[in-house]
């Protein structure tokens, strides 16, 4: 049984202290996540890869209370197994708002502006029993 990121180039892995991999536009300065070859704001191709800060603040959040349709949802749980989860935007200081899952699914324990930290979590399991890893943010200790 092994574990591997859901997609290469998404976050540094394996790592004791993983970071999301973004890109920065050399012309207009916008930061994107995930990384992109062309700038989605000014169309420049002067994009360079950057490692993003591990901590940020919760910009806003919501909850997903029902199993999303598959596709486009890539999870493999059934409606009976589904557990509502929280998701939102984490603003990485001076960089970008990252659309992300949150590890804390109780909205009462989340508040806009709280400190959040990157974690790597299992997202689903392949038929061979391998864990597929993705990124999420948890309330920072």
């Amino acid at each position: 049984m092994t574990s591997a990121p859901v997609e290469d180039g998404l976050f540094t892995w394996p790592s004791e202290s993983p970071q999301l991999i973004g890109s920065k536009c050399g012309d207009c300065g916008v930061t994107t996540f995930p990384r992109q070859a062309g700038c989605p704001r000014c169309t420049s191709e002067a994009m360079s890869e950057i490692l993003l800060p591990r901590r940020g603040t919760l910009w806003t959040f919501t909850t997903q209370e029902f199993l999303p349709k598959n596709p486009p949802y890539a999870g493999t749980e059934t409606a009976e197994q589904f557990q509502p989860f929280a998701l939102g935007y984490v603003e990485l200081p001076g960089e970008v708002k990252v659309e992300t899952r949150l590890t804390e699914s109780d909205p009462a324990k989340l508040s806009i502006g709280m400190e959040m930290e990157l974690v790597i979590v299992p997202f689903r399991r392949t038929p061979d029993g391998d864990d597929v890893l993705t990124f999420a943010f948890e309330p920072a200790s």
């Binding site: 859901v6 997609e7 998404l10 995930p34 806003t60 919501t62 909850t63 997903q64 029902f66 999303p68 349709k69 596709p71 486009p72 949802y73 890539a74 999870g75 998701l87 939102g88 659309e99 992300t100 899952r101 997202f123 689903r124 597929v132 993705t134």
Partner: peptide, 22 residues
């Protein structure tokens, strides 16, 4: 919802109601 380009799991599942709930 439409089944668009394959989602490789790199984007979280922000459904339409979740997006507008913001």
């Amino acid at each position: 919802a439409v089944a668009g380009a394959a989602n490789d799991g790199t984007q979280p599942a922000l459904s339409a109601p979740a997006m507008f709930s913001l």
